[in-house]
Amino acid sequence: MNNFAHSTDTPTFETAAMVHRTRRRRATLIAGFAAALIVAGGGTALASMTGASQTSAKPAATVDHSKATFLLGGVTKEPIAVDLTGQDLGTAKGQLVKAKLKLGTVVKVNTPNCKPATVVELTPHTPKIVAKGDTVNVKLCAG
């Protein structure tokens, strides 16, 4: 039995090569995940800025959407239209913060067929393009 146990040579391992290969694979995997997260995160941020995930009800047709929409410039080649029609003040503030804009004056106005305390008009609005740091004034429905 001793002859059998001592007859084979012990295997040799190139530990330096194994460690190098493992580190290279790990670095590639981490870079791939990071790139995927950046792409997914950028798409999510852009979708939320354009209002794709809005869930609140829109007001009746008497509210002019073009007056409650601003064009955000400097993010992509073409300006991005952000429609805040029918959003409450908290949501509108959040969208302005995401767009790196400042909230100006907030005024309540009487507008027919609109939900109270929702956005009916922004200044400046389309077709004017706003850039980061600009001030946007908001008019809310008085009800």
Results as ranks from 00 to 15, higher is better:
Met1Asp: 08
Phe4Gly: 00
Ala5Gly: 00
Asp9Arg: 09
Pro11Gln: 12
Phe13Thr: 05
Met18Thr: 11
Arg21Thr: 06
Arg24Asp: 11
Arg25Tyr: 12
Arg25Pro: 00
Leu37Trp: 10
Val39Pro: 01
Gly42Asn: 11
Gly43Ser: 08
Leu46Gln: 08
Ala47Lys: 01
Ser48Glu: 15
Gly51Thr: 10
Gly51Phe: 12
Ala52Phe: 15
Ser56Gln: 14
Ala57Leu: 12
Ala57Val: 13
Ala57Ser: 12
Thr62Ile: 12
Asp64Met: 13
Ser66Arg: 15
Lys67Ile: 02
Lys67Met: 07
Lys67Asn: 04
Lys67Tyr: 01
Lys67Ala: 13
Lys67Phe: 01
Ala68Trp: 07
Phe70Val: 05
Val75Phe: 05
Val75Ala: 11
Thr76Ile: 14
Glu78Lys: 14
Asp83Lys: 13
Asp83Tyr: 10
Gln87Val: 03
Asp88Leu: 08
Asp88Ile: 05
Leu89Gln: 06
Leu89Met: 06
Gly90Glu: 10
Gly90Asp: 14
Ala92Gly: 03
Ala92Thr: 10
Gly94Pro: 00
Ala99Met: 02
Lys100Thr: 14
Lys102Asp: 13
Lys102His: 13
Thr105Ala: 15
Val107Lys: 14
Lys108Thr: 07
Lys108Gln: 08
Cys114His: 00
Lys115Met: 04
Val119Cys: 03
Val120Thr: 06
Glu121Trp: 02
Leu122Gly: 05
Pro124Lys: 08
Thr126Ser: 12
Val130Lys: 06
Lys132Val: 08
Gly133Ile: 02
Asp134Asn: 11
Lys139Ala: 05
Cys141Ala: 09
